[in-house]
Design a protein around this nucleic acid. Structure first.
Lengths: 217, 217
DNA sequence: TAGATTGTTAATCGATTAACAATC
DNA sequence: TAGATTGTTAATCGATTAACAATC
């Protein structure tokens, strides 16, 4: 029996994509089995943590043997929901929106981009890898009779909340926000923020720390 | 006396940019003072956590009053090192590299993009907001006599480690990696990864969970 | 001054690590 | 079988929350 989604902590969930990535690499190297200890060596988590993490979802290993790489990869793919298909729309067809639309790996994993939406007339009408850039005013009409799972916000901060509200009305089930603001969404909508500046500011902090340490050792 | 950088946990550090962002918003609304309780209401951390976080770096508040918004903003900017100037180079001038080069907010915060580097001849010679796109083979020569603080990797996975190695040789002090692989760097180099697919996969997981819950309530 | 709110210590909670019996 | 390694429970560690005296 597969136990899934009990109440697994977000800390564990955020490690799953890394397992997924590493197992993929192992498969490409034709490694067929791996122990938690070996995996620990390459992934940087303790062997204990790896076993704990995996056991949130089921016993995928075998005592005395370890884990079958291919099987574990398949399981984690399933746990992450990568065996499903998702329809997405991207709002904002600037460089970032285009970058995401162009990222063919997402398509491979089942994330299909239906269209990009823009207000800049220069961009409307373009095609990004066969995906049309449409007028933002057409969004509501476009989404009728379609099931849109994920809305991606690639606009500037000023428009992000407006766009979020429009997406919620479609409705979408999740919002992937790249604008550097904290948008407000209904509780039941999955929200994931990618605040690039936060990440850059952490670099800045760490560089400053390093500099200070060199001065006062 | 300002206590900085003792051994503040990464959990705290990763919250700092969010304080920074919210305080900016408050300043724009001409709010001059705020209590940890009020801030808690808008930012979603407990008041207790906010006070704990800030006290890692010093006592910026005043009993009975709260915090001076503008002063706290300035302090957090300083703690994050945003009062410094950083030179950056971006390797990979595709949509993502261009998006980052175009992001004028970074420039405002002191992150100056010296140049982008590309191997695709169609892109070499372009200018992104006055920033030239140069041949990747010119990187080493270009960096001579220049102090490059941050190298940004916007290439595909295949080239990411090579590029990282080149950046380390320049040298750079930090690597900001957008390729969906785990690159290996010397210990003393600051590394920050933005794995977009990880973020998307977490959305996928949460959507799947939500679906499952609706079926087995 | 009285009221409000911090800074800080103590208590709780949760996540990570260690240990080991189960078992392949 | 003996050796290896898991799954799982217990111990530890760290982070968050609660409480309250200090003080503006």
């Amino acid at each position: 029996m597969k136990k899934d989604h009990k109440d697994v902590s977000m800390a564990v969930i955020r490690r799953l994509p890394k397992y997924h990535r590493r197992l993929k690499e192992l498969m490409e190297k034709d490694v067929t089995r791996i122990s938690s200890k070996e995996l620990s060596g390459m992934i940087g988590f303790t062997a204990s943590q790896i076993r704990q993490d995996l056991n949130c979802f089921g016993g995928f290993g075998q005592q005395g043997y370890g884990y079958d790489v291919s099987e574990l990869y398949t399981e984690i793919s399933r746990i992450l929901g990568l065996t499903e298909h998702y329809n997405t729309v991207i709002v904002g067809a600037g460089n970032l929106g285009q970058a995401i639309a162009n990222y063919s790996n997402f398509e491979k994993k089942g994330f299909h981009v239906l269209a990009l939406f823009e207000k800049n007339p220069r961009l409307i009408g373009l095609k990004i890898r066969d995906v049309p850039v449409l007028d933002i005013d057409e969004l509501e009409e476009f989404a009728k009779n379609k099931s849109v799972d994920i809305g991606v916000i690639c606009t500037n901060s000023e428009n992000a909340q407006d766009v979020a509200d429009q997406l919620v009305k479609l409705p979408v089930k999740a919002v992937w926000n790249f604008a550097p603001v904290d948008i407000i969404l209904p509780e039941n909508i999955v929200q994931e923020n990618v605040h690039l500046s936060d990440s850059l500011f952490v670099i800045s902090y760490l560089l400053k720390m390093q500099r200070d340490e060199q001065q006062n050792p």
